[in-house]
């Protein structure tokens, strides 16, 4: 089995397609029409009338209605806008070691989001980052590009030390169209505080940001005890420790506080935050992610 098949086997793609239809049905149940935006545009789809006010484009005056009512109204048409979907995948070493499930989850999530974006006629760009931000694909549009994204992500190497702050600062999303950004990472930098600071920079982006915190259950509740040499997967730093249940309880508290802190900071900056444990059901979590108010889900 090739790497492509390992990550994105036909079964997964089938499930993804079923997931997409599931999402579309849910969307259709909520409202008619597709991919509407609240703003008006110049498409052929009529939306509404409103009173003419000086300064309005007189080309939009409905003269027929003026002839009948002797009042000037402006015709309003619906605007159908395409989004720019940014998918940022953490490819640092902590995403593959010691729990390779995080890599699989991160890549599958990226593919799912890309597939969703492409199939909805949005532009999709895939970036990877560890110590620096790297563009993996140019902005792609059209369902046919999913294979190139699959191929590109399958060849991604997970290595390097996470430098979240530098990577996110170096990322500049375009302002030409509305953007939806998905940041897929375990957010393990040099220290928990630095991760929170890095998210401050992400809050300034002119996009709708979703932070997907990928975690392994053992990272949240490690089952370690006794004298151990703990080696950091990225830096190689080794610490010798005596761990007891008391220490593990303190660790869990510290980690929970860290997650809550991230959640709080994202909320304050109007960023969506979700932590995604690798043992969660992918479909359920994906639906949950998109049902949290993502523009991508509502398009």
């Amino acid at each position: 089995m090739s790497v492509d098949n390992e990550l994105f086997d036909p079964e997964f793609l089938g499930r993804l397609r079923a997931l997409f239809f599931k999402l579309r049905r849910r969307r259709q149940m909520k409202k008619k029409g597709i991919q509407q935006t609240p703003t008006a545009g110049f498409t052929r789809e009529f939306k509404d009338h409103r009173h003419y006010t000086p300064g309005d484009d007189f080309r939009g005056i409905d003269w027929r209605l003026y002839a009948r009512l002797e009042k000037m109204f402006i015709r309003i048409f619906e605007e159908v806008q395409e989004y720019h979907v940014y998918i940022l995948v953490d490819t640092s070493e902590s995403m593959i070691k010691p729990y390779p499930e995080k890599r699989v989850l991160g890549l599958r999530l990226a593919v799912a989001l890309a597939y969703l974006g492409l199939i909805s006629q949005h532009r999709v760009s895939v970036f990877t980052f560890s110590d620096d931000m790297r563009r993996e694909t140019p902005p792609l549009k059209g369902q046919g590009h999913i294979h190139s994204i699959l191929k590109q992500l399958a060849g991604t190497k997970f290595e390097g030390v996470t430098n979240l702050q530098h990577s996110l600062r170096s990322f500049r999303p375009g302002r030409d169209r509305k953007g939806v950004l998905f940041l897929i990472s375990d957010l393990f930098g040099r220290s928990p505080e630095l991760s929170q600071e890095a998210l401050l920079d992400a809050a300034a982006w002119p996009v709708e940001s979703h932070v997907i915190h990928v975690l392994h259950p053992d990272e949240m509740r490690p089952n370690l005890e006794g004298e151990l040499q703990l080696q950091d997967v990225e830096t190689g730093e080794v610490r010798r420790m005596w761990l007891t249940k008391r220490e593990m309880e303190r660790y869990a508290k510290e980690f929970d506080a860290y997650v809550e802190g991230l959640q709080r900071e994202c909320l304050r900056r109007q960023m969506d935050y979700v932590y995604w444990k690798t043992d969660h059901s992918f479909e359920e979590m994906f639906v949950e992610l998109l049902s949290r108010g993502s523009s991508l889900a509502g398009a």
């Binding site: 902590s94 070691k97 010691p98 729990y99 375990d186 393990f188 040099r190 220290s191 928990p192 990272e219 490690p222 370690l224 006794g226 004298e227 151990l228 040499q229 703990l230 080696q231 950091d232 997967v233 990225e234 830096t235 730093e237 080794v238 610490r239 010798r240 660790y251 510290e254 980690f255 860290y258």
Partner: peptide, 11 residues
């Protein structure tokens, strides 16, 4: 002592 690779050493 046993050496264990972890990703959460800062914690």
């Amino acid at each position: 002592p046993k050496r264990i690779v972890v990703s959460t050493l800062p914690f």
